[in-house]
Design a protein around this nucleic acid. Structure first.
Lengths: 125, 125
DNA sequence: AATTTTGGTTAGCAAAGAGTAACTGTTTGT
DNA sequence: ACAAACAGTTACTCTTTGCTAACCAAAATT
């Protein structure tokens, strides 16, 4: 549907990460990972469902739709590159690198995030 | 008072920029620069006043307090460095560089912003 | 000096995101 | 099998940030 909001991107990203190893994603895990209440997760899940990014039955587990995967993936890739840079080049601690890479990717424009990722990849090799 | 919110930082930064050349800062200019209504600016100005970042009389102009200058300055410096990098190294257009440098500085942790700025300065010389 | 334009304020509203509390399902241990 | 524990939901409320509309103040123009 519309453009994803910052918060929606964060949830999507968290869901993507939790599902990485192929395991089921449950609402409470999302809440715990994000440091947010179950209720907040529930309402955001409803929203993401409505917008077609996730799939979820009543009391069921959460799964990403095609669209959801696409959106989450583009966030994920840049995030990994930037987190790496923050941690290994700038020498920031893991937690900070983790948090701030997401913030940068989520808030800066796609154009900037893409150029930055490319640039950091070049430098690395 | 408390930590500044993202939005408050943006307003503070805009006020700082408008006042750079020593000229008076008027509420409507802030609104125009930020693409926001006069009413929004008024209520944010009230908040920033209350928190001691700006000074302003009824129907008067806006001025930064000591605290306001301190806060805005630390945003400003990093912003310039990062904007420069985005524009000259990554080759992004001015508007994007402008917007995204602010977003990065405002949303990432101070620790990260400081390290990043230092790093970019080193590289430059 | 009176009127128009511009700038500033206020009140009331809305959406997004988060929270608590109370409730309903689901699982699990005995 | 049933009670306890855990997971999910729902119905509020609150805060932040924005908006519009209507209203005051000040400046500029004639």
């Amino acid at each position: 549907m519309n453009e994803l909001t910052y918060s929606q991107k964060k949830y999507l990203f968290a869901i993507y990460n939790l599902g990485q190893n192929g395991s089921e994603v449950r609402s409470s895990e999302v809440a715990k990972l994000m440091g947010v209440s179950k209720a907040s997760t529930a309402s955001m899940a409803a929203k993401l469902c409505e917008c077609g990014y996730i799939r979820k039955e009543h009391y069921g587990q959460i799964g990403l739709t095609e669209n959801g995967i696409k959106a989450a993936n583009s966030i994920y890739t840049s995030c990994v590159i930037i987190r790496n840079f923050l941690e290994n080049v700038l020498g920031l601690d893991e937690k900070t690198a983790d948090e701030d890479s997401v913030k940068i990717v989520i808030h800066a424009s796609e154009k900037t995030v893409n150029r930055l990722s490319e640039h950091l990849l070049e430098k690395q090799s």
